[in-house]
Design a protein around this nucleic acid. Structure first.
Length: 574
RNA sequence: GGCGAGGUAGCUCAGCUGGUUAGAGCACACGACUCAUAAUCGUGGGGUCGGGGGUUCGAGUCCCCCCCUCGCCA
């Protein structure tokens, strides 16, 4: 196997609150699965995530919490970091889009784009709230709809009659933030990224990605071709919290007091976070640049992004336009794995309504592995999928407790009672064992192929099949019967089965890292080497090797618990 | 209204460029086993593949129309 270098990024979660399970399964979790698998196969991996911290919602959330926005973001970053650790998300670095690295890099990209003629200054009129001392984004202006008379219409659209509005259309407009009616229209200047000038480049690039999921390319092409086609995009805002507008390290005349739009600086944070990683580990710039600069070693890097479908336009068009327009040799993404939505019990997960299970709540009721297994084995790859408590309970109980957990239990306890807690000697492998080895080799190849291709659900099915094969073997070999007449032969069977536990720990680790660690600890080894060859992998634990019977790996979810949680999470988040 | 994704066994889903009796897991029934977390293993019942046309020797798989769900946009 040739060692490869793989750069993996997960869409970066917004700072203003804790994410729900739908967000988790749409980007961070599958990205982690892929990162863990690639590391397990011996590849060099750089797995990057961060918090997305700028913009109006962050400012408002901070105000609501009664804290300065920078302090609020620092606290929420720590909270999200803890939860990510709780889910065992194995980021090499979990950065912050508000970092000095991202400030400098964002300003650098803007400067380069301007130099190459891809930035246009546009003067436009926006609503300014005197009481709030700030410009108001359209959706933060409320008033009476001129069309239907609804008195809580927003400046971008009336939610009652769905008519598209301009803020100036509203009757008796007021600030949605303070309620103040002291509003005035002011002239303000903004920078636009001339995406239309890069349209041909973008289209050619996307057309060259024939191996991308249809979900990814269909969304990209829609934005490229729909209506009037790809539009130029404003990349600055009249806000206080954000990356100050600069042309590289120089001031940008006329843009004083403005910041870059959150969607401009957020993807750049992928790069900046890698630089933050280098800083945090006392490494040189060359150490992160070899992942991102094709002129500095990134030519052989494979870059894979994970995200929900709502993020696809920014990753297929806006961010690539930023990179292409810089005319600098930054690494473009090689593969975009995108996901549909996970629904919750007949409806949508909703952050604003607190509907569904949020990441902190999930960890408070069950260990990470339960969630990881269910979410990954039901990842919304081909269409939206649905979380129900009944499905969660049966899947987890059956797959984890019955098929895998019980297998570990029956093997180790049987050995302990008949041979003691060491790998027993005697006997030889026969045709039945040879058949098992052949089957496992074939199934493992299929599993690996799915993991390489990021076919998450299929990989889970293959892995489960491998677990089942172990039970099938035991059932057919029946060492509990054989031991009565031929203890040596039974010993050979159990020797194989104990080694099987180690193999299962290694290959299951990307899905269920904690259980894998328990299995490995029980087997008394730290040999995580991937079972390239099953026959030899099943001899890693030698005769006489000591092990212990692990605690129950997965306890079952009871009907009472299921009913309780179903009730608890049906309504509004406390 | 436009666009995109879907509508396959009770449930959750597989089914690439059309090809013999449409698959898996769960649930259900029966049987085997008793080492194990009342776990495991085997066998079986169950679907006119949203509806209607069409192309074809042959369509869940291609074309047209319609219905329904979800999302995005206007």
């Amino acid at each position: 196997m040739i060692m490869a270098r793989i750069l993996i990024t997960s869409a970066i979660p917004y700072i203003n609150g804790i994410k729900h399970l739908g967000n988790l399964v749409g980007s961070q979790l599958p990205a982690d699965l892929f990162a863990r698998y690639m590391r397990a196969r011996g590849h060099e991996v750089m797995f990057i995530c961060a918090t997305d911290e700028h913009g109006t919602p962050a400012e408002l959330a901070a105000a609501k919490a009664g804290k300065p926005v920078d302090e609020f973001c620092a606290e929420m970053h720590a909270v999200q970091k803890d939860i990510a650790d709780g889910f065992r998300l194995s980021f090499d670095h979990f950065g912050r889009s508000s970092s000095p690295r991202n400030h400098r890099l964002t300003q650098h990209f803007a400067g380069a784009l301007a130099e190459n003629g891809f930035i246009e200054e546009v003067s436009e009129k926006q609503v300014f709230s005197i009481a709030d001392n700030r410009f108001l984004p359209d959706r933060y202006i409320e008033g009476t709809c001129p069309n239907c008379g609804y008195d809580k219409a927003r400046g971008d659209q009336c939610e009652n009659c769905t008519k598209q509005l301009d803020p100036t259309d509203l009757i008796n407009p007021r600030s949605a933030i303070s309620g103040s009616t002291e509003l005035e229209v002011r002239e303000t200047k903004h920078l636009y990224l001339k995406q239309r000038s890069l349209r041909a480049d973008l289209e050619a690039w996307i057309d060259s990605k024939t191996d991308w999921p249809v979900l990814t390319t269909s969304i990209a092409k829609k934005w490229l071709n729909d209506g009037d086609g790809l539009q130029d995009r404003g990349i600055t805002r009249d806000l206080h919290w954000g990356v100050p507008v600069k042309k590289g390290d120089q001031p940008w005349p006329g843009m004083e007091g403005k910041v870059f739009y959150v969607w401009f600086d957020a993807p750049i944070e992928y790069i900046a976070a890698t630089a933050e990683w280098a800083d945090a580990h006392g490494k040189a710039d060359a150490d992160w640049e070899r992942w991102w600069r094709t002129d500095k070693g990134a030519e052989d890097v494979r870059y894979v992004q994970f995200m929900g479908k709502d993020n696809v336009p920014f990753h297929t068009l806006s961010f690539p336009a930023t990179i292409m327009g810089s005319r600098e040799p930054w690494k473009l993404v090689d593969y975009i794995k995108s996901f549909n939505y996970l629904n919750y019990d007949g409806g949508q997960f909703s952050t604003s309504q607190g509907r569904g299970v949020f990441m902190d709540q999930a960890l408070s009721i069950l260990p990470a592995d339960y969630w990881r297994w269910w979410l990954l084995s039901h990842a919304p790859e081909n269409s939206d999928s649905e979380f129900t408590w009944e499905n969660f309970q049966t899947s987890v109980n059956k797959d984890l407790a019955d098929v895998l957990g019980n297998l570990v239990s029956r093997v180790t306890k049987f050995c302990r009672s008949k041979f003691g807690e060491t790998v027993p000697a005697g006997g030889e492998f026969g045709p039945r064992e040879a058949a098992l080895i052949a089957e496992l080799q074939g199934r493992l190849d299929a599993y690996s192929a799915c993991m390489e291709a990021m076919e998450v659900r299929k990989a889970a099915i293959e892995l489960r099949g491998i677990w089942v094969a172990g039970n099938e073997y035991l059932q057919a070999a029946a060492p509990w019967t054989v031991v009565k007449t031929d203890p040596e032969q039974a010993a050979a069977m159990i020797r194989l089965a104990l080694n099987l536990i180690r193999v299962y720990a290694v290959i299951s680790q990307p899905f269920i890292p904690d259980a894998a660690a328990s299995m490995m600890a029980g087997m008394g080894t730290e040999d995580w080497s991937w079972p390239e060859d099953i026959a030899s992998a099943l001899q890693v634990l030698p005769v006489g090797h000591e092990f212990t019977v692990p605690e129950v790996l997965f306890r079952k979810i009871t009907d009472e618990e299921r009913a309780e949680w179903q009730q608890k999470f049906s309504g509004v988040r406390a």
